[in-house]
Nucleic acid binder design. Structure first.
Length: 264
DNA sequence: CTCAGTGTTCAGTG
DNA sequence: TCACTGAACACTGA
């Protein structure tokens, strides 16, 4: 379930587990779809024996800084993940295992194979990270600047929130939660928002991202008032904690859960 | 058997 | 070129 809060949570775990450690073993699985523009063998060769300096992230992309380039870069797609607790994993979906000199293991898995493993000399300067907009944890523009950016976009706000070239790290659940908490209808043209609405949207975004990251993306610890707890399973009897009805429709090409009574 | 899905990319259109 | 839309990708689980 990888949107920014989930990826940031993995980044922090990886940094704690791998920082300063040497990669003793690199086990790769032959998968020409998940390994993008690099063969698994070449990927393994580049990593083996290197020391991990840091774990970095921008938007939903995660990479390891090693003491020698190139560096490994990960994107999780819809179903990818990196596990540090390798117990109970379904071996069918394992694409990569990194083992450090102290025996720690990090396992990349992805059943649906929409995730990507890459090898790059300078990830922030190369595609796809170079094409990202601002990271919604690190650098959301001031309300006036954000308003100016949105003025130029006629697409539904939901679609613009999902545009990684603008809001890097926002995914389907975060977008719906932001729109719900800001009280804005998802189908509104982005250009139609007033400065006051942009301010509310921005505040909701910051609050949601910071809270989700603070609780380690553990949804059981998301506030009870969040739409998140009620949005799953397109059931006609879905209601918010305040008893308002939730509707589901496709907006911006994605299933969108929203509350007509609260969003204008 | 059918369909939805916490994402991205590409083709087609205006 | 750019913005926008919808389909494609790939696969599991309900």
């Amino acid at each position: 379930m990888p949107e920014l809060p989930e990826v940031e949570t993995v980044r922090r775990r990886l940094e704690r587990a791998l920082r300063g450690r040497r990669l003793r073993r690199v086990h790769v699985v032959d998968d020409p779809i998940v390994y993008d523009a690099v063969t698994p063998a070449a990927f393994a060769r580049a990593l083996r024996g290197q020391r991990v300096v840091a774990a970095r992230r921008k938007g939903k992309h995660l990479w390891l800084e090693l003491d020698r380039r190139p560096w490994p870069l990960f994107h999780f797609g819809m179903t990818g993940w990196i596990h540090l607790d390798s117990g109970g994993l379904d071996r069918r979906f394992t694409k990569l295992v990194l083992e450090t000199d102290d025996g720690t293991r990090a396992v990349f898995t992805d059943p649906r194979r929409l995730g990507r493993i890459r090898l790059q000399d300078d990830p922030p300067a190369e595609r796809p990270i170079a094409e990202l907009g601002f990271d919604v944890l690190e650098g959301v523009p001031a309300p006036r600047d954000l308003h100016t950016m949105l003025q130029r976009r006629s697409a539904p706000l939901k679609a613009v929130l999902l545009d990684q070239g603008v809001f890097a790290g926002v995914g389907n659940w975060v977008a719906d939660e932001v729109l719900f908490q800001a009280g804005v209808r998802p189908q509104r043209p982005a250009s139609s928002l007033s400065i006051a609405e942009v301010r509310a949207l921005r505040q909701s975004l910051l609050r949601i991202i910071r809270k989700a990251v603070a609780v380690g993306a553990d949804d059981a610890r998301f506030p009870a008032s969040w739409l998140f707890h009620h949005r799953w399973g397109k059931r006609a009897d879905a209601y918010t904690s305040r008893g308002d009805q939730i509707v589901h429709e496709t907006i911006g090409g994605r299933t969108t859960a929203w509350v007509p009574k609260r969003q204008r």
